[in-house]
Nucleic acid binder design. Structure first.
Length: 469
RNA sequence: GGCGACAUAGCCAAGUGGUAAGGCAGAGGACUGCAAAUCCUUUAUCCCCGGUUCAAAUCCGGGUGUCGCCUCCA
């Protein structure tokens, strides 16, 4: 079985074969840290977090790099508004990023490089382009010469004339061609700046990703990913400058996720219709946000609405419940004496579910389909759990399956809180005494009290159990 | 103007040639001291029109609608 991925470059699903054996390099364009990131950004981080986890699970040795853009026009503007330095601004929102991302179950990248910490690499890359006459300096501003790179426009599949014709922005007089873009920007008064062969200035936006991707992942990276609006110009430009400098393919597979829309419109900072993760996760379990994102295919647009999160919450609860059922049962279930034919059959069936899960994920990371496999297994498991004779092995293996795939999708992690546990268990014991005496009023009062604490009680054939709301 | 994506049940959403997965919500039933959880039953002329084919949600042509990129944006 092979993994197939949709490559924006070819507009087709291709068989995934890493450049170097089973080593996989992934570079994902990260946030510009001038504000809290919104749930549209979150979709990108979540989706590629799953891609990363899945490839690891499939046996690849993955190196995952996600940058922080910590110097650009927006950073400078925002820092001025807040009356702090650009680097203070970066520190503040990088810390915020880490908190919000962790809440969403996004693993830390292996490397989180920052543009300002890679100025020497950036300058060196620009120098190479200058030597190759693919870049030119006009009074301290250095531009990439798009005319010098024949394949320009190849990623976005736009004819050059059309890109120019559609340009909605005033043409910079200094540029030789309207599509040329800044590699190095000359310092303006009051702006942070670094020394360079072209004078004081700072890197353009696109060059940082090229420099950092090549530094950490080599001249050709397996996967370079980001949001759909990065295809042009950001990734087009990265490709041009990188391949211009090295003469080698910069990226083997370009992956782009779909938009997260709100009221059927793209959510973006510039439109002002955004909702930050920081804000939303006060109202809803951040893993519900994650589940919501993964319940559609990553390349399709999804629309955000509070009702849809509600639906997602109910769905995730269902899966959480079955995992909970299994965990609870394992605490009381004795080992079986003999293995029955049914046990064998159940274990076989489990294998089928696993294969279905893999087939779904192998097909361009179809998490929606993969999740439906979990729902199918959830039903079968719940039905099985009603039986009098249960096989401990089956329960264990089923739980293991859920935890296994949960680790890929980022669900079913166990949280413990011993102090709370003791208190709850004491209350449950009291309620059981009341129930034994058929004192339903007292029993129900205790149940309500627990509910007020956010604890749901359930009386099951295997005894009382509780879970957090 | 150029390029592109999408249109599947009340809602969300898989499925790219073989007769419509899954979830949420609703209705009815089972179980329960009551609940909760769970299970069972129940809901689709796959946007429209034409074509190819033994066979089309799926391929081709033409519409309609929605959105996006071409400017910083994930």
């Amino acid at each position: 079985m092979t993994i197939r991925v949709y490559n924006t470059m070819t507009r087709k699903k291709e068989e995934f074969v890493p450049v170097n054996d089973n080593k996989v390099g992934i570079y994902v364009c990260g946030p510009t840290v001038y504000d809290y990131f919104h749930i549209g950004n979150a979709r990108i981080f979540i989706v590629f977090d799953v891609v990363r986890r899945y490839l690891k699970w499939r046996g690849y040795e993955v190196t995952y790099v996600q940058n922080f853009t910590d110097i650009d026009d927006k950073m400078i503007k925002r820092a001025q508004e807040l009356g702090i330095t650009v680097s203070e601004l970066a520190e503040r929102f990088i810390a915020a990023y880490r908190e919000d991302a962790a809440a969403l179950g996004i693993e830390e990248a292996d490397v989180h490089p920052r543009a300002t910490e890679h100025i020497p690499e950036i300058i060196k890359l620009i120098e190479t382009l200058m030597e190759k006459k693919m870049a030119y300096n006009v009074d301290g501003n250095v531009y990439f010469d798009t005319q010098a790179y024949a394949q320009y426009g190849g990623l976005s599949q736009q004819p050059l004339e059309e890109l120019v014709a559609g340009a909605r922005v005033e043409v910079d007089e200094q540029k030789k061609h309207p599509l040329d873009f800044a590699l190095w920007k000359k310092q303006k008064p009051g702006e942070p700046a670094w020394e360079s062969p072209w004078g004081l200035g700072r890197p353009g936006w696109h060059i940082e990703c090229s420099a950092m991707s090549m530094k950490y992942l080599g001249e050709t990276v397996d996967i370079h990913a980001g949001g759909p609006d990065l295809v042009f110009p950001h990734h087009e430009n990265e490709k041009a400058q990188s391949e211009g400098a090295t003469g080698k393919p910069f990226v083997k597979y370009w992956l782009h996720a779909g938009y997260l829309n709100i009221n059927k419109q793209k959510m973006s900072k510039s439109l002002g219709n955004f909702l930050t993760v920081r804000e939303l996760r006060q109202k809803i379990d951040p893993l519900v946000i994650r589940f919501f994102m993964l319940s559609a295919h990553y390349r399709n647009p999804i629309n955000y609405a509070p009702e849809l999160l509600q639906q997602a919450q109910s769905g995730l609860e269902r899966l959480n419940n079955v995992v909970y059922n299994l965990r609870h049962l394992l605490t009381t279930l004795p080992p079986e004496k003999v293995q029955t034919a049914e046990t064998e059959e159940k274990l076989q069936a489990l294998q089928t579910y696993k294969e279905r899960f893999i087939t779904a994920m192998d097909d361009d990371f179809n998490t929606a389909d993969a999740i439906s496999v979990l729902f199918d297994l959830a039903r079968e498991t719940n039905t099985y759990l009603k039986k009098k004779e249960l096989s401990k092995i089956v329960i264990e293996k089923t739980l293991q399956f859920f935890e296994d795939v949960g680790a890929i999708l980022g669900f079913f992690t166990e949280k413990e809180d011993n102090e709370l546990d003791e208190k709850i268990n004491a209350m449950i014991a009291k309620r059981q005494e009341a129930r034994a005496k058929k004192d339903w009023a007292t029993a129900d009062a205790i149940r309500d009290e627990l509910l007020a604490m956010g604890i749901i009680l359930e009386d099951t054939p295997q005894g009382v159990r509780w879970r957090k709301k």
